[in-house]
Simulated assay, not measured.
Amino acid sequence: MAVFTVVTEADLSAWMRHYDLGDVVDFRGISSGIENSNFFLTTTRGDYVLTVFEKLTAEQLPFYLDLMRHLASHSVPVPDPVPRDDGMLFGMLHGKPAAIVTKLEGAAELSPGVEHCEEVGRMLARMHLAGRDFAPHQPNLRSLGWWTETVPAIVPFVSGAQRDLLVSELAHQTRFFGSHDYAALPGGPCHCDLFRDNVLFAPAEPGTGHRVRLGGFFDFYFAGCDKWLFDVAVTVNDWCIELATGQLDRVRLEAMLRAYQTVRPFTREECLHWNDMLRAGAYRFWVSRLYDFYLPRAAAMLQPHDPAHFERVLLARLTAASTPHAFSLCN
């Protein structure tokens, strides 16, 4: 992620005394993203990622790290937090919580095909089911409550048409979230940010008949307990679209949803409200990108995302909602 907190060699040397990871071979900042300070860390024991958390507090962080440990123990490929010498999964660095996790194998695929979408769909369903017996509860901190608080701060910066869309969609989602059908949607721990750059792929093993192998899901620091359908919608809105227009790509979409349902079939309520949740997923990221664009924080390496992208995605979902033959979740 963007480097907000600079970690020097002296800082790293003192920090590594709390871990049994051998000697440091390489250490460098990761420039992509806008939320935390991340660094690649290579030691004589292996490859890791050091994260300094810029917003999450020491009280909030255990949910995310414990969830990752839980999923890793259930054979879901995710970064596994490394315990310190005191047994804790994080410590304080420059007054901020920080942790070391294992580095996954593979590289991101920014131009995914059908097989990539199938792999992600299956693993996302496995992840949802694996989280059912995870006891701690942390709500999705970027859900309706955050939208309601944040939109008034954004409104002064945007055009009249954008202002009208922000307000009208917030009203729609408020009604949806307050409905009996929404309450009936199944849920549990969700990634909530499973974009293309948060998934890694490695070459498939010989003899499997596959071209790619899922290396794993990472960057769980927007995770929270939410409706599983929201997690699917967020994922589809990035993996299964034409980036230039925001329109859904039916071939990739159907591949991902079919693969997901081989592990966990969708419920009646999920089928009825698929487009509502696609809109919610688009709205969440339009609001957050507008906020980061107009009210940014200082950082040593900062590359804010273009808010217009998710405005296009949301408008495409609104158009689909009024189309007689719009794609149904349970076709």
Rank of each mutant, 00 (worst) to 15 (best):
P296F: 07
W15I: 11
R264H: 08
F27I: 08
Q303E: 12
H70I: 13
V6T: 11
L61G: 03
R211I: 06
H210Q: 14
L71Y: 08
V78S: 01
A108H: 09
L295V: 12
T57G: 14
R142Q: 04
P136I: 10
C225H: 14
V25I: 15
A130M: 03
F134Q: 09
F230N: 12
W239N: 02
F266D: 00
D231Q: 08
Y64F: 15
P265A: 12
V158F: 06
T174C: 03
L165W: 04
F134Y: 15
H18E: 14
S322Y: 01
D249N: 15
W228V: 06
S75F: 07
A130E: 02
E311D: 12
G246L: 09
M92P: 02
L124I: 07
A135L: 13
T235L: 07
L272F: 06
E59N: 10
M88T: 15
P81T: 07
F230Y: 10
Q173L: 15
R211Q: 13
Y182G: 04
G46H: 04
V76I: 15
A171Y: 00
A326M: 00
L290A: 09
N237E: 08
Y182P: 03
P186Q: 00
S13Q: 14
R213A: 15
L318R: 14
V120M: 07
L302Y: 15
L314D: 08
G33P: 00
M256N: 06
V52L: 11
F285E: 11
V167M: 13
T148P: 01
G188Q: 11
L89D: 03
F40G: 02
A320D: 15
Y48Q: 05
G215C: 09
R84D: 08
P83W: 07
M68F: 01
R264M: 14
A153K: 15
K227C: 07
M277W: 05
L257Y: 03
V76D: 02
S159Y: 01
P112Q: 03
I34W: 00
F222C: 11
R175K: 13
R213E: 14
G91M: 10
A108W: 02
W146H: 13
G29I: 10
F201G: 08
M16A: 04
F27R: 07
A72Q: 01
S179W: 08
P83C: 08
H309T: 10
V24A: 07
